[in-house]
Simulated scan of single mutants.
Amino acid sequence: MKNDAAVRPQANQAPVRLSKGDFVTGLRKLLQVAARAGETSVDVRAATLHTDVGVYPARGHSMPTCCTVMYEEMLPGDEILLTPPGGKGPALLVRYKLPR
């Protein structure tokens, strides 16, 4: 078994630019896991999603892209629980209704 610290780059390493697709995949996987567990909704915080997908906080992070994906993946019935100043930031919190 690999140690997470050995697999993930550290915050002081060169930045890794994450794509929109990386965040879409990560968010959809999170929603699928929650749906399989029988949840009726899941609250997703941008900082947590970004950390799950790639290093955050880190120099050259992709938080704006992460937040854009969170907004774009919203469907009717989903709700924004917390909007950071400017609309994009690690505090963004969205409740996604399940099943999708």
Rank of each mutant, 00 (worst) to 15 (best):
A34K: 10
K97N: 01
K20H: 15
P85W: 01
P85R: 14
E79W: 03
F23M: 07
R8K: 14
L93F: 08
L27T: 02
V69K: 11
R17W: 00
P84R: 03
L93K: 15
F23A: 08
T40L: 12
V69C: 10
A91G: 06
T65D: 11
G21P: 01
V16N: 03
A6M: 14
L49E: 01
I80N: 06
V69L: 10
E39A: 14
T40I: 06
L31E: 02
H61R: 09
M1G: 15
L27C: 08
D4R: 12
L27K: 07
L93S: 10
K97G: 01
G77C: 06
R36G: 15
I80M: 14
D78Y: 04
A91I: 09
A58N: 12
K2R: 11
D43A: 12
V7D: 13
E79K: 14
R45F: 04
K29G: 13
Y71V: 05
L98W: 03
V53F: 09
T68L: 13
L27S: 06
H61F: 07
K20R: 15
P57S: 06
I80F: 01
L92C: 03
A6E: 15
G77I: 10
G87V: 12
R17S: 12
L31F: 01
R36Y: 09
Q13V: 00
E72F: 00
L82N: 13
V69W: 13
A14Y: 08
G21V: 05
Q10C: 07
A34Y: 04
R8A: 15
L92I: 07
T51G: 08
T68F: 08
